[in-house]
Amino acid sequence: MIEAAMIWNEPNNKSHWDPEIDPDWSRFANMAKLAADAIRDINPGLRRVLGGISPIDPDFMALMKSYGVLDHVDAVAVHGFPLDWNLWQIEEWPRRLEEIRAVTDLPMWISEVGVSTFGAEEVQLWGLRKTAELLKGKVERIQWYSLYDLPRAWGATTRHKEAEGSSYYRHFYMGLLREDGAPKLAVDEFARHTPEIGLVQWFHFEDPRLDDAVSWMKRLGVTHLRTGLSWADRFQPSALAWFDRQMAALEEFEVTVTFCFTPEHRGIAPHHTSAPIVPEEFADFCAEMTARYAPGPSSLEGLPESVVSGQMRETSFPIQPRE
């Protein structure tokens, strides 16, 4: 079911990793290597992917290489949104990919690419067609962001909120479906490019859209899905019940699971973007989730009972609900 484990999301974007706490990304590099090794110890055959970078920055990739992070993963990933947030035009996609290929020979994924309907649905339709023309066959994985519009009541995962102006509000219009599940113009076009192009859909804790999302993905011919399991959500009292339900619902797809989001009470600062106080705890979470949903042959033999039983958190510090 799970084809890959992605370590964090957009580590070079301050909406996902705080550079004031970790200005040289050395803390992130250490955490990523610990996590990659923990995943490998559970399932040596599970592909490990460095979280997709946004912006596409070859200097950041070179920094990760200098820290040895790329020696611990099997692929790297990039995110691109030239019609919404990036300061380059959509025709530049091939050049942006070559800039990363100049740094590493590892397979490259485009683990998020998308176009909002903030201005008009016709823009998304054109952007999808152009993206497919430029990128199909050029990388190992392409994952379109996203299936659903983000509900306005939930808020976007970004640091500056409304102060970003229209850049913030574009977050709420990235779906092929509106918030209420109604299809947009680009839905039929997307179906013409599956299964070669997959989907990204983040599910919030106890997300009510889960079952409808599965139905839509089957209807659209999706086989490859990228989603996430939140380290912060692991501290909710019913975390494992929700994780089990989510992963069971997705069992018919080849899933890339992204591990990310620091629990507020385990960060150097009380925020999901913070470097953790103890980076080994994030590695423990990755190991626990891998053992639960993608155990390798004989991977549970000799592991601590805390990992096998899913009670690892209680052995190191009390579980606290996330506020």
Rank of each mutant, 00 (worst) to 15 (best):
M1Y: 00
W8S: 11
P11A: 09
W17Q: 03
P23C: 12
P23R: 11
R27C: 06
A29M: 09
N30E: 15
A36L: 08
A38L: 03
P44H: 06
L50E: 00
P55E: 00
P58W: 03
P58H: 07
M61E: 13
A62W: 09
M64K: 01
Y67G: 09
G68Q: 06
L70A: 01
V73K: 02
V78G: 03
D84I: 07
N86C: 14
E92P: 08
R95P: 00
L97H: 04
I100D: 00
A102G: 09
L106I: 00
M108S: 02
I110A: 01
S116E: 05
F118G: 01
E121G: 08
V123A: 04
V123Y: 01
Q124A: 03
Q124S: 00
W126T: 11
A132N: 03
L134H: 07
G137R: 03
I142T: 01
Y145V: 04
S146C: 09
Y148W: 15
L150G: 10
P151Y: 03
P151I: 04
A156L: 05
H160M: 14
S167M: 10
Y169I: 09
H171E: 10
G175W: 10
L176E: 02
L177F: 03
D180M: 06
G181N: 05
P183D: 13
A191S: 13
A191R: 12
P195Y: 13
E196G: 07
Q201S: 07
H204L: 14
F205I: 04
E206H: 14
S215P: 09
W216F: 12
T223H: 09
L225G: 02
L225P: 02
R226I: 15
W231K: 06
W231P: 04
D233L: 02
P237F: 00
S238E: 15
F243Y: 12
Q246P: 07
E251M: 10
E252R: 10
E252V: 13
P263G: 06
E264C: 02
E264L: 12
H265I: 07
R266L: 15
H272Q: 12
A275I: 08
V278W: 06
A283Y: 05
D284R: 14
D284E: 12
E288M: 12
M289N: 04
R292P: 04
P295G: 12
P295N: 05
G296H: 09
G296D: 10
P297T: 08
S298C: 15
S299V: 08
P304D: 14
E305R: 15
S306E: 12
S309K: 15
R313N: 10
S316W: 14
P318Q: 13
P318I: 11
I319P: 12
Q320S: 14
P321Q: 08
